[in-house]
Amino acid sequence: MTALFVLLLYTATAVLVAGVGYRVWDYARTPAPLKIPTTPAPTTRGGVALRMAREVVLFESLFRSNLWTWAFGWLFHAGLALVLLRHLRYFVEPVPAWLAFVQPFGIWAGVAMAAGLAGLWARRFLVPRVRYISTPSDHLMIVLLLAIALTGLAMTFVAHADIVAVKAFILGLVLFDWQPLPGDPLVAVHLALVAVLMLVFPFSKLLHAPGLFFSPTRNQADDPRERRHLAPWAARLDREP
């Protein structure tokens, strides 16, 4: 059992890092030949960084679009961010004071995350337009995330896991000094689902996370009259007769 999970988690990590790394490299090497920022857009790089930060942190465009989707989506993502932060404690020893401080918030963040997911899932049934565009994989993705959240919450609220043993197992992975996986089915299911999430990340719509940073309508500065923007393949055309 331990060997299986060690293998699974290493594989999942490798696929996640290599897969997303490849995508990021692929996006970065593909040129954006024309200036297409959605205007009004910032005219400087600093302004672009600020616009991007508002998109990443506040979901600004989604806020303008649909308050329900924004509320559920933001709740889920903010919850997820805090939950991930909380889980850092399994990877470091000793646990720094700020990380200890975050812990209780992390629990409620888990609840927020599950509530956000539930709301997003409900939209896929209740709003005819959203139901129309939902594919099986859209539903499965929510099921997967919700299952991860619920098994995690269950270990806090229902059947306490032996988190000391869990931490030993995970630190063992980090230090390549493998320790036994606690024989708790909730832990096993939770970890297995996380591994699945990591495995599908580079092949699925979860690529929206790196994708946003490469979106030309959001990451380009509005300065086409001041600077000549030229992709390498387009520059070659100027030199042809």
Binding site: T30, P33, V130, T135, K205, G211
Partner: peptide
């Protein structure tokens, strides 16, 4: 040739916005 096309075909999460 177009980063927009590549990123946009990958990134949509069907949120419905």
């Amino acid at each position: 040739k177009y980063r927009s096309l590549k990123v946009y075909l990958d990134a949509c999460v069907h949120c419905g916005a």
